[in-house]
Amino acid sequence: MSSKRLKQAKKNLPLHLMLLPGVVLMLVFAYVPMYGIVIAFQQFVPAKGLFGNQTWVGLDNFRIVFTYPKIWQVLRNTVWISIWKIVLSVVVPVVFALLLNEIRLKVFKRSVQTIIYFPYFLSWVVFAGILIDVLSPGTGIVNTFIKSLGLDPIYFLGNENWFPTTVITTDILKTFGFNTVIYLAAISGIHPELYDVSAVDGANRWQQVIHITLPGIKIIVILLTVLGMGNILNAGFDQVWNLLNNNVLSTGEILDTYVYRQGILARLYGQGAAIALMKSVVSLGFIGSSYVIAYKYLNYRLF
């Protein structure tokens, strides 16, 4: 090694040391279990043991999964719901963070922050139960309101056309409060001087928001969106499983609920693993492309 390299290596030794514990932990607890990916290529029978004499079936599991007619409908539902969730789960909390930022009354500001962050902690088992009541076409509050406007009641959870919208909206309702936290943190970190300077220049509040606040949180917004994109095939198992019913399967069955039925309940572990592997590859593709796009067009390295 050249002396320059040697010098840099020596200087960077502390950095390597810092990374060492993390590397060891990951090797043991992430890379070793990755052996399990082979299950996707086996007809896996747990009774024989993980390292036991399993039958290898090559790409058969993948073939079976993709030749079942339902899979395309399931994928379509998943992507549709996912994309809307990703977009709204950034837009709505950002808007709320901006609105909250405008509140001068500290007590109100703090209380609202704390209160809206509560639904995040409900399990979907419970929240779904409540939603079924609240969204009921007969006695639910929402439809009572709709009827008072002279309109027909809407079966939000029982109608296949409405189901995806309901899923997306209620998920945002549950999580936006918590996500607002992140954006508030980002907003509050912007140099106050930037605002003062622009005020002197005659900017009004709206202009300040557009030209200072939003660009100020641009990076974090992009970052979270991209990380969200990695989740494109996770449309929210917990939620959908608890809200799903037999009438809305055509628009409501997502990849994970399908995998739960096939991979766990029907004990087709190989197929479940095959789908999981496929999901990982897709996530990699999405995040990889986003990274490249961000780098090329925004000149920013996401990580």
Binding site: V28, F29, A30, P33, M34, I39, P46, S283, I287
Partner: peptide, 12 residues
Amino acid sequence: LFSGGIIPMFVL
């Protein structure tokens, strides 16, 4: 992104 799943983790 990539995981072996819960069964290998359990075995480990």
